[in-house]
Amino acid sequence: MSIAMQIETENAVPAASNPIIEVKGISKIYGSDIVALENIDLAFEEGQLTSLLGPSGCGKTTLLKIVAGLLKPSHGEILVKGKKVHGPGPERAFVFQDFALMPWANVMQNVAFGLKMQGVGKAAREDTARHYISEVGLSGFEQKFPHQLSGGMRQRVGLARALAVNADVLLMDEPFSAVDEQTRRKFQEDLMRLREVEKKTFLFVTHSIEEAVYVSDRIVLLSPRPGRVSQIIDPDIPQDIGPDELRRNDVYLDTVESIWHGIKKYVE
C-alpha cells in the first residue's frame, strides 16, 4: 500500500509542539462496572482540527463532554492552556448534535445566549451576534424562530452561538449528523473555509469516516468497550485542491479505506 500517511501505534502520546488541550489518563466509569473510557492520553494542537472517530459506543461523545467540562471523569484530568478543567470555561464552546436551540427565542437571541450568560450588555452582544450570524450565512434571518429554519440552518445558528463567545476551542459533537447529506457536504466545505478565517482549534466528533478524513488535520480513532485510543492518523492530503477534486483524490480514498479496515472488526 502506498498510503502517504503517518500511523502512530497504541499508547504513544503524540508529541504536540503546542498543545492547547491535554487529556491525561482520562477514564470514565458509569455505575460500578461500565467502562466508557479507559486511560486516554491525548494532546490537541492549537489551530488544528482533530476528529474523534469511532463506532457507536466507543465513548467519543463522552470524551468530548469531559473536555467541555459537562461530565466529570472518573480518573485523570484535562488541561486547557496548562490549567486544570473543573467545569465549562470561556475558552471552550460546544456545538450540540441536536442543536440545542431555545425554541422560544429567535435566531438573534439564540446566538447571543452565550454572551448573555457572560454578562455582556444587550447592545454589545447583539452586535457580536449579528456579525457571526452573517459569518455563517444567515443574514436576514435574525428574527426567525428555530422552527422556521431547516435543519442545516439550525445548526448554523448553533455554530454562530459557539463562535460568538470567541472561545479558542470549538467542541463539536456530531454536528452534521442530524442534517441531510447535501446540506452536510455544503456544511463541511463551509467549516473548512471558516477554519481558515477564524484560526480556532476544533475538536470534532463524528462517526463518518469520509467526513473525518475530509475535514481533519488529525484523526483519533477510538475502539469500543472499553473506549481506548486505537490509532492516530494524520491524513496527508494535498492542501491546495478544491473540494470536488478532493473527493476523488487517491490519498483521500485510500485513507478512508484503511480506516474502514481498522474499524470493521468492531462493527457488530
Binding site: K65, L70, P88, G89, A93, P103, M117, Q118
Partner: peptide, 27 residues
C-alpha cells in the same frame, strides 16, 4: 425539559440559577 438545552446553558457557564431562569422555566 430537553437535557441538551440545560447542558447547553451549562456549557456557556450559566449558573444553576440561570439554567432555571433562562432555560427550564421557559422550556
Amino acid at each position: 425539559v430537553p437535557p441538551s438545552l440545560v447542558s447547553m446553558c451549562h456549557s456557556f457557564m450559566g449558573s444553576r440559577q440561570q439554567q432555571i431562569l433562562h432555560i427550564i422555566i421557559p422550556a
